[in-house]
């Protein structure tokens, strides 16, 4: 009880301190900080919009890429894989989930980016170039690379948690479906997944949290240019990256305050995204109350 309150107090204290440190920036820009695209340390004009955009879009892209793959992997490992393969795969997925971000960043920089620039991006532009998403110079450094790196980083986490969630679906649920004459795939689709959906959303939320907070790997592949471009090939910038890149060289008090202001925004965005995820779980559960089966 005391520990819980203490923890809450600690978080509150952190917010207050960040708030205070961001004071000059909050005073200077107020709400327009959220909507300003300019980031000009020389003239002392700061806006967070490109960073918010970069973080949200790269995260969304990562979820879109990682979601189906992770869920598929979790279903395979939990439901279909023979026991031996299941153990090996499960172990490897858990291991992958623990690899530090910087390693993914290095790999992204030296392997993924050149491949994107030389191979995938020109092809995407050739076949899907009619969409603004896939137009522009193929540099291999930008939003697409960031999304892919993030997807690779969060999919082990989503897979591992989803798998646990699928494995605790009671046998009675599966048997009920089997007894109605369901094929193994129908058992998964109609009994296991619906039963586990709250937990799966939870797994995705965890992945989302990691994606939003990820810093190093992204900084190495996203291109670090504060712009909002429709093209996925174009460089972008995220909130975490700008903080880590500029923190040491921010000599102007306003510059430093603006960076801390971004940290505050990041905090709020994380809070918001998690609240929305919680709300989704709540709404799903309200429609279907739980009882023991």
């Amino acid at each position: 009880m005391i520990c819980a309150i203490g923890l809450l107090g600690l978080v509150l204290l952190m917010v207050i301190l960040i708030w205070q440190a961001a004071g000059p920036s909050i005073k200077a820009f107020g709400f327009s900080f959220f909507f300003t695209r300019e980031w000009d340390p020389v003239h002392g004009r700061f806006g967070a919009l490109p960073y918010i955009y970069g973080t949200l879009v790269s995260t969304l892209l990562a979820l879109l890429l990682a979601g189906p793959v992770s869920l598929g992997a979790a279903v395979y490992v939990a439901e279909f894989a023979p026991r031996k393969i299941k153990n090996i795969l499960g172990f490897m997925i858990d291991l992958l989930a623990a690899v530090p971000g910087i390693i993914f960043g290095l790999w992204g920089n030296f392997v993924l980016s050149p491949w994107l620039a030389g191979s995938l991006e020109p092809r995407l532009e050739h076949y899907f170039g009619f969409l603004p998403l896939f137009r522009g110079p193929a540099t291999g450094v930008g939003m697409l690379a960031a999304g892919i790196i993030l997807a690779i980083m969060i999919s082990p986490l989503i897979t591992a948690v989803s798998r646990e969630v699928l494995e605790i679906v009671p046998a009675s649920q599966r048997e009920a479906m089997i007894a109605l004459g369901a094929t193994p795939w129908e058992v998964v689709r109609r009994a296991v997944l619906p039963y586990a959906r709250t937990g799966i959303v939870g797994a995705f939320t965890l992945g989302l949290g990691r994606a939003i907070g990820e810093t190093m790997a992204l900084t190495m592949v996203i291109g670090n240019r504060p712009q909002i471009s429709a093209s996925l090939f174009a460089p972008a910038y995220t909130m975490t990256s700008v903080i880590v890149n500029e923190f040491t060289e921010a000599v102007e008090p306003l510059h430093l305050a603006a960076l801390i202001h971004i940290a505050l925004v990041l905090f709020l965005v994380t809070l918001l995204v998690n609240t929305v995820a919680r709300l989704m779980i709540y709404l799903m559960n309200r429609r279907v109350k739980k009882w023991t089966v």
Binding site: S172, A176, L180, G181, E186, Y195, K289
Partner: peptide, 29 residues
């Protein structure tokens, strides 16, 4: 299993479905 139905020890209803959907789950299959 479609010709030989089964009722289990504990009522293992599908909690994500409505009463109606539960009844017709097998037909749906």
């Amino acid at each position: 299993r479609r010709r030989v139905g089964m009722v289990f020890q504990t009522p293992n209803i599908f909690p994500a479905m409505s009463i109606f959907q539960n009844v017709v789950a097998g037909l749906y299959l």
